[in-house]
Design a protein around this nucleic acid. Structure first.
Lengths: 265, 265
DNA sequence: AGCGGCCATTGACCCGAGTCAACGCGACGA
DNA sequence: TCGTCGCGTTGACTCGGGTCAATGGCCGCT
């Protein structure tokens, strides 16, 4: 999956060294292997590179660094210089922030094809970390701008992704502002399922790449409340759990109605 | 401010007719008056048109419709065809959604220069309505795309605005997910002040173009809780109210610390 | 096979914000 | 001038979700 970068050095299990720094200095072999590296990319059809032809893809490959990282690896921290933009080629990640007094919050989950770390500010307002084993591409902001000039279709695509991210974040605002705990959990499970379906996943069983604590931090709840809400949905027969990292939606219409906020009406 | 469109017909006080439909059929006089219409625009330095030269501005003026609208005028509704993009030239507006059971939520406030209604979907997920008397520009999505091709700098600017909106929305997610009622109100007042400062406003007194109910719907609270929080901040001597539509920040560092989430630590 | 750590679940109690209700005040029209 | 209406404020009570704590299952390690 990440052959072009070199295995051992890229896959790091929680060492203090940043994964991209670890890959620094390895032979980049610009231009070579672009086909093998990008052509078979898991995010090829949904991500930033979707509209690119073979030549542009080759150009892109030469400008980006790609690494495979372990679960729970930070990609960048809040306050870091926002000099790069990241795309998630494979796996799941989340954006987080910790408040001065220690409260922890997640502002969103990201799946294959999503972009991370694009901001108008000079530093990252949020940190990002992987939830699962993942493959990450990193581009320098200035190089990306240059790419935009060479391939206008790339800029158009980037704007689309940005708008999609905005829409998802707005949806999340609504959920945090007006939904109850159980509604939020229903909303989360449903949107996670839809995100996986958009990426080609079929069937009523989906991946759940998050612990109760992760979900709680995303939904503005505590892990106990999430656990109770999941149990309640299970007892109603609307969802089923398959181990700790997969779930099944057994009563989709009911779950959707709850997630949309059909309280009593 | 909106002379080119014609006064009487454009300023509507809560009639069922949509403001842009009311302006339909009026003489557009393409090309004329672009200088007077756009040159002195309140959002000229912060909005979408900021990087445009005189010629491009003229082009833009010919492609957009502009109306002045009364406070509390809906611009579009959730579910409407997302065929246009709106920019707020002057005044304040908010994006709202009403849940099936009647719960009302606002996902954001927008001020001069901000864009509204840009979404990857075919319909608007949220409605928009003015809070104050406002001036609105509307562009057809397809015409905007064509403009992007004629003026690449416009697309770059649009992407910047989109990223700014994303950053603001993410910040809002954090507030809703992890801040207490009083912290949220402090956060809101501070970000409203900062938004006005970014637009050139000076001094510790700022506009408050929202009722307690508006603020509550934005912050995921009730109007009573907002009122109590405002009173508490006033009693601490951190803010002062000037009538119903202006407020003063008298202890900015304290307010900022509270808004950032410095609970006990 | 036995042990220990991590994660999830469940229960009992508490608190911050929601709910319901009364009241004050300024704007506006009769 | 007075009555009314919309908005804001404040109080008393309720309740959803947070907090604290005990228990149990799964998995990897030895």
């Amino acid at each position: 999956m990440s052959r072009a970068v070199g295995r051992g050095a890229a896959v790091i299990e929680g060492r203090p060294l940043h994964p991209f720094d670890a890959a620094r200095g390895l032979p980049r072999r610009p231009g070579t292997g672009a086909a093998s590296r990008c052509q078979g990319c898991g995010a090829r059809s949904v991500g930033l590179c979707a509209p690119l032809g073979p030549a542009a893809l080759d150009d892109m490959a030469a400008e980006t660094e790609r690494v495979a990282v372990a679960p729970r690896t930070p990609l960048f921290h809040q306050g870091d210089d926002a000099s790069h933009v990241y795309t998630l080629a494979e796996g799941a990640a989340r954006l987080t922030r910790v408040l001065p007094d220690g409260r922890q919050a997640a502002i969103g989950f990201r799946l294959a094809g999503d972009i991370m770390g694009f901001t108008p500010a000079t530093e990252h307002a949020f940190g990002a970390e992987t939830l699962t084993r993942a493959t990450i591409c990193r581009v320098d902001r200035r190089r990306l701008d240059a790419m935009f000039r060479r391939h206008p279709v790339l800029e158009r695509r980037f704007l689309e992704l940005c708008a999609g991210e905005l829409a998802a974040t707005q949806d999340h605002v609504l959920a945090l502002g007006r939904l109850t705990a159980q509604e939020r959990v229903a909303h989360f499970l449903l949107s996670l399922a839809e995100a996986q379906e958009r990426r080609g996943r079929r069937g009523p069983v989906f991946d759940l790449p998050a612990t109760r604590t992760d979900i709680a931090e995303l939904l503005g709840l505590t892990l106990e409340t999430v656990s109770r809400a999941v149990s309640a949905l299970r007892k109603r027969g609307w969802i089923k759990l398959h181990g700790l990292s997969a779930f099944e939606i057994t009563e989709r219409p009911s779950l959707a109605a709850l997630a949309a906020g059909e309280g009593g009406a």
